[in-house]
Design a binder for these strands. Structure first.
Lengths: 348, 348
DNA sequence: CGTCGTGCAGCAAGCGCTTTCTATCCAGGG
DNA sequence: CCCTGGATAGAAAGCGCTTGCTGCACGACG
């Protein structure tokens, strides 16, 4: 029924071994023979059996990209960049690889299961993007998995995710702490003293680091911390909307709101507007990430730009062994403060 | 080095066959035996060799999801919904499948290559999302590929993509024509007579259908068509920005701009604002898709909501054989007109 | 003119798993 | 007490491909 290597060999009047070598091109084959084989492949419309060759060669051309939320452009942009470098089809010539993105939905179990699935497929490389969940048992499980993957020859790269100690994994981390600190410092410099903070989900590294940066800036300015001014939520618009209402209820005198990311900030803007407050006249708002839509918000969003595409591309290249990993296997990628219309001097 | 089925068998003191059966759970195995095997699996930290089992069983648990642009939430949302149904890890219990999304970047070649790669992996199912490129040779190539995939037992589902005749593929198409028509009709009803249209890339089915709907509404209202009022671009913000400037140059008296999608509409809004025109006071703007950020635009965007998540979920279920395909293998999914702040009565 | 090196092609042994067919065991039934 | 059959477990034959090694020309060299 299905065409196999042997069929091609028969048609080209050569041995299966020769066909295999023509297809893999890593062994001398006479030009005339090669041509004959190629013609046969074409005529029979032959497609290599992936599992069979992966089994025989003990390697596969699968590369996994794990993301927390594929519907979020933050991950989409990184995934897109990573994948462009992996080659996927159409990358640079040679070794066609199947770059696949796996959506964990932020769930530790799914993350682990995907890792197992990729291990099962003997993936050539795996790139994990975005923040990690901080629960100790989960972290340990992931570490163990990553170690095992490395041992099996799978290259592991972390992109926008903190390093995994005791692991061979290369890490490209975002300087969330520094970015957040600069952002809040900017607000403080403008004169703000009562700032609300809308954090992401607890137990996420990204959430913690950004919050720490925010608090560091506060502390540096001698502003005492008020636990009531921090609300945890998710990394989406809705969360920003609700959290803002809550913050306003707790303290109507807030003059600025710092959001965990741009989507959250957009939700915050919506809530403020509906509450009859102007931005930045009554309340300044700041986001994080600088996703494409942020510049289109009205007023446009002050935020911290993360070089998502660049970092992704680099991670992809490292995963393919086309770029030297950073010294020590760890590199920190800085964000850039983008001051725009949504932040201003506080009223009165 | 690596643990194999045989190792597990040895440790559990059973035959490899039994281990396989325990793992696949489709053959009676005594409870005590099962337990012993499972313990051995655990102790040895055994991970099934995917390629090997795919080869032996002649099926794999890979499911491919093709998208045009993974950084675009339009696709992200669909992909996410599809994948949630595929199961991926964490779906419903049983057969864990590796749902992978492949980013074609809108390129026909990459689409084809990915299809081949998936065929090579003997994928269990493939879901193609979004519009197709209309070039005849490409369409023929895709059709041939899809047919071959079906023959090989891969289930093929099209989501938000026109049907592929002469193919077994199930199609869930969006009624782009109808939605676009309703949208433009709404504008006409408001009193607009001079409307600009920013289309997507030419040669895309989605582009053509939306444009056809727009023109149908125009024709129905007896408004003569002016080719100069249509500009082609890409499906992104930038394109909307530039196209708007171009439209304004060609005819400063436009009272409305209909965009190919929401991102384009956002770009249009930015261009209008910078040109000193108010929305919808001077010019009304409408988008398409109703992506999450559209409601946050200021003013919020009038658009056509496409049930991306619902359609994706359904496509996913059909791909898994968990839902009956629609009669005839084709279903049309309607959009819903969302009238919001960005459209209004044209100025005097 | 014999021999060795080189360049290509083929042989055959797996890769690790699934699955058909067969063997075994034990409970009942005749 | 022997036979039948249901319930489990095992033996072994591949699945389609890769690759180390062998085989065989042919030209060059001594």
């Amino acid at each position: 029924m299905t065409v196999t290597l042997a069929d091609v060999a028969a048609r080209a009047q050569v041995s299966p071994a020769t066909v295999s070598r023509v297809l893999n091109g890593n062994y001398p084959v006479a030009a005339s023979t090669r041509e004959r084989v190629l013609r046969a492949v074409d005529e029979l419309d032959y497609v290599l059996n992936g599992p069979a060759s992966a089994l025989a060669a003990a390697t596969s051309d699968l590369v996994g990209i794990l993301v927390n939320d594929i519907a979020d452009p933050f991950f989409g942009i990184m995934a897109s960049a990573i994948q462009a470098e992996i080659g996927g089809p159409g990358g640079r010539a040679g070794g066609e690889r199947l770059a696949v993105v796996c959506n964990t939905g932020g769930s530790p179990e799914r993350e682990l299961t995907y890792l197992t699935l990729l291990q099962r497929q003997r993936a050539a490389a795996v790139v994990l993007t975005g923040g990690a969940v901080e629960s100790a048992p989960h972290a340990a499980a992931v570490t163990a998995k990553l170690r095992k993957l490395s041992e099996a020859g799978t290259r592991v790269v972390l992109c926008g995710r903190p390093p995994a100690p005791d692991t061979q994994a290369i890490a490209l981390t975002f300087d969330n702490r520094g970015g957040a600190r600069a952002l809040t410092a900017h607000l403080i410099g403008l004169g703000h003293r009562r700032l609300g903070y809308i954090a992401g989900p607890e137990e996420r590294t990204t959430t913690r680091h950004r919050l720490e940066g925010h608090r560091a800036a506060l502390a540096a300015a001698g502003i005492e911390e008020d636990a009531g001014r921090t609300v945890y939520g998710r990394y989406d618009r809705r969360s920003g909307y609700e959290a803002t209402l809550e913050l306003l209820r707790r303290d109507p005198s807030l003059t600025a709101i710092v959001a965990a990311n741009d989507s959250v900030a957009l939700g915050a803007c919506a809530a403020l507007r509906e509450s009859g407050l102007s931005i930045p006249g009554d309340v300044s708002v700041a986001g994080f990430d600088d996703l494409p839509f942020s510049i289109d918000a009205v007023p446009s969003l002050t935020t911290v730009r993360l070089p998502l595409a660049e970092a992704g591309a680099r991670a992809g290249r490292i995963a393919m062994g086309r770029e030297e990993p950073p010294p020590g296997g760890i590199a920190s990628v800085r964000g850039e403060l983008m001051v725009r219309g949504s932040t201003g001097v506080p009223r009165g």
